[in-house]
Design a protein around this nucleic acid. Structure first.
Length: 720
DNA sequence: CACCCTCGAGTTCA
DNA sequence: CTCGAGGGTG
């Protein structure tokens, strides 16, 4: 900031006028965003802005970054969601899941520093992380966390959140400061919002975090006045609490807890539930207290964040590439709730397995509304001892998959009845039977024609691990197969025409056709294929040239998934060679044993299976790897830089999709494994990495970020 | 034969 | 994510 000596009287007058305009414009802007009041007409506002811009053009030194012409508000909506690079990386936190794990972590910190540690305990809000950038005390941008390096610009919407100050009050703001906080929907406001959504027939949000995230991502562009008003009302119900600050070389305070005092004095909202504990026991007490009183707080809590309070120790302890070493997130155990078991229904999957699942009164567990949960098989139903009509205990295993734990026996009133596994397939009526003697699972034997199985197989063909066909998912699988569509088996998949699709009717709708011409309102309409129909046909055509292994997966051979299929494909090179192979020859492939070999041979003995191969071939499928030398021939792993290495990918890796990352590993001779074990050579981890990362840490396996992964791919392990 | 590693399958929700 | 089971190894 070079201060230029200016004594020119014109300049002084301009400066005074600019200051006046700036104050006025910012006041108007506050009124507009905070209270939805337009105190002057748009034209008057624009005139003021133009005058200010003119002055700044004449005297560029007046056009500081805190000028309204440079800052936010009134910016075009199109800047919404544009990428914003955070001035300083937003780290995530490592997790612990029990008090014992927490004690271990705390003990490590204690050992690492030479003096007694004070711990700052805060509630971990289940919301959306946000980064607010203030330049000379004026809000210049608001961004989501994104991958920690780059987030999405949500400034326009953040301005509408009441708790976010557009200007900091008080004194001593740094030139540039990034304030980190959490945007959330208070539980009460969230329930209100959902009630309104129901009343207006809109979809309800599963949890406050999704509501917050959805609200922040709304676009004003193209909305009617009424919808705009709704959108603003939603944003005005959001709240924010700050919980940190980006780089600040010389803070005027010595402890994180004091930072909050300072931030509060600037007008930023801070939590009044943070506590400093002098001992690890004190922290444990805090954790226990809120474990029992999770629901007495106005927002949802998914844990407790414990930070080393003294700022000097933050520098001393430092950070890993993804998380600081001076803070940890304690995650509460998965929440358990009670709900009513309305019914136990049986569904049939693509392999014909009949799976009973619980249909429950919808209930919120650990952040989302659950209405169904699998019960695996009839033995599990018995083992859990649940009766239809029971009140049951439900939880989310690993916070994701709903699981029925068991009945609350004392709440029974005698009206409950036992679940009886049906003898017949609920979809096609065939008599269910175990696949082989002694199997617990019952299967529908009507493999070829059972609608549930055909539907399941078609969906599977389109899935990511098989042919990865866009536009062929669950919904289209239902549409394409009986009773709606023409595919009595998957053999006809590649023979589908636009005309076939146009005939399909699901629930009174015809999803694959649209009106192309209609002379008058009452005249008969002319129909043509919809965009979805064109896309599906094009994608099917594109799929015909995909790799052999994908087609093997698409055939739905038992036990043959992506891994076994890749092994078979690269060993034999063509479907013909696989078909000709004996059980012993098949079992010679690494990863294939007698059971898989038998399953492959059995598959080819069924007429309608062979028909699939023939009709797909007639439609243009190659069933071979070009230039493959034949059985035992070219193996994919000849001399890659990753030969002999097993690599596990977890989280999102910048620059790669999961598939691309795995492909990159395989194509260089490495093995892309799904889980971490002693045999794992490296774990490549990005944002969103879960338990695999922790496991890698336990086993002392080297963890690579996206950058190091690239090096590994280019140069092999010696390059690291 | 006992173990550990993997894979495959089913599953939930935004 | 978790379960069950196949495959491979010691």
């Amino acid at each position: 900031m070079a201060e230029i000596e200016q004594t020119d009287p014109d300049f002084e007058a301009a400066r005074a006028r600019a200051d006046e305009l700036t104050t006025r414009i910012l006041d108007l802007r506050d009124a507009y965003y905070d209270r939805d009041e337009s105190l002057v007409s748009d034209a008057e506002y624009d005139a003021m802005m133009h005058e200010l811009e003119d002055i700044e053009r004449a005297y560029p030194e007046l056009a500081g970054q805190d000028s309204p012409t440079q800052t936010v508000g009134g910016k075009a909506d199109s800047t919404l969601f544009a990428p914003i690079v955070h001035a300083e990386r937003m780290l995530s936190l490592d997790n612990v899941f029990s008090i014992d794990e927490f004690r271990e972590w705390a003990a490590r910190v204690d050992r690492a520093v030479a003096r007694p540690v004070r711990w700052l305990c805060e509630l971990k809000i289940d919301g959306l992380a946000i980064n607010l950038r203030y330049e000379r005390g004026v809000l210049t941008s608001a961004a989501t966390r994104g991958d920690g390096v780059t987030g999405e610009d949500v400034t326009e919407n953040a301005l509408r959140i009441p708790g976010i100050p557009k200007r900091l009050s008080g004194e001593g703001h740094p030139e540039l400061v990034e304030v980190r906080g959490e945007v959330y929907f208070p539980v009460a406001a969230f329930e209100e919002l959902n009630a309104e959504q129901v009343a207006s027939g809109d979809r309800v949000f599963a949890n406050p975090r999704n509501a917050a995230s959805g609200s922040l991502r709304q676009k004003a562009e193209g909305k009617s006045a009424k919808d705009l008003d709704l959108m603003r009302r939603r944003l005005s119900r959001l709240k924010m609490l700050v919980h940190g600050i980006g780089a600040w070389p010389d803070p005027p305070v010595a402890a994180q807890s004091e930072v909050y005092g300072l931030l509060a004095s600037w007008g930023l909202p801070t939590s009044d539930r943070a506590r400093v504990a002098d001992s690890i026991d004190g922290v444990a007490e805090f954790i226990e207290h809120y474990g029992e009183h999770r629901h007495s707080v106005e927002h949802e809590i998914d844990g407790v964040v414990v930070k080393v309070d003294e700022l000097a120790l933050h520098d001393e302890l430092g950070a890993t590439s993804r998380a600081p070493r001076w803070a940890i997130a304690y995650k509460y155990p998965p929440e358990q709730v009670q709900t009513k078991l309305l019914d136990i229904v049986v569904s049939v999957g693509r392999t014909g397995r009949a799976t009973p699942f619980a249909v429950m009164e919808p209930v919120r567990v650990a952040g989302s509304v659950v209405r169904q949960a699998t019960l695996h098989n009839q033995d599990v139903v018995k083992a859990k001892g649940v009766l239809i009509g029971d009140t049951v205990v439900l939880r989310k295993a690993g916070d994701v998959i709903p699981e029925v734990l068991g009945p609350v026996v004392e709440l029974r009133d005698g009206s409950e009845r036992e679940f009886v596994m049906p003898r017949e397939c609920p979809e096609c009526g065939a008599v269910l039977a175990p696949a082989k003697e002694g199997d617990i699972d019952l299967r529908c034997p009507n493999t070829k024609a059972c609608p549930a199985q055909v539907r399941g197989r078609v969906e599977h063909i389109g899935s990511r691990g098989a042919l990865d066909i866009e536009g062929l998912g669950e919904v289209s699988a239902i549409a394409l197969t009986p009773p709606h569509g023409p595919l009595t088996t998957e053999a006809g998949l590649f023979d589908l025409t636009l005309e076939d699709l146009a005939m399909i009717e699901v629930g009174g709708e015809r999803p694959y056709r649209k009106i192309v011409k209609q002379a008058r309102r009452d005249a008969p309409a002319e129909y043509g294929p919809s965009a979805a129909a064109e896309e599906l046909i094009a994608e099917l055509d594109k799929a015909k040239t995909k790799d052999l292994w994908r087609f093997l997966v698409a055939l739905n051979i038992r036990h043959v998934g992506p891994v076994a299929a890749r092994a078979l494909a690269s060993y034999f090179g063509s479907l013909e060679a696989i078909r000709a192979a004996s059980a012993a020859e098949l079992a010679a492939v690494d990863g294939v044993g007698p059971i898989i070999a038998e399953a492959v041979i059995d598959w080819f003995t069924v007429d309608w299976h062979v028909e699939i191969v023939e009709r797909w071939a007639a439609a243009g499928v190659q069933w071979a790897i070009e230039g493959h030398a034949g059985p035992g021939g070219a193996s994919a792993s000849a001399g890659g830089v990753l030969d002999g290495l097993t690599i596990v990918v977890t989280g999102t890796i910048e620059g790669f999709t999961r598939e691309e990352a795995e492909e990159a590993i395989l194509s260089r001779g490495g093995k892309a494994a799904g889980s971490v074990s002693k045999k794992t050579s490296f774990v490549v981890a990005g944002p969103g990495a879960g338990s695999k990362l922790a496991k890698a840490g336990d086993l002392g396996i080297r963890i690579l970020d996206a950058e190091e992964f690239r090096t590994l791919l280019a140069e092999g392990p010696s390059g690291l």
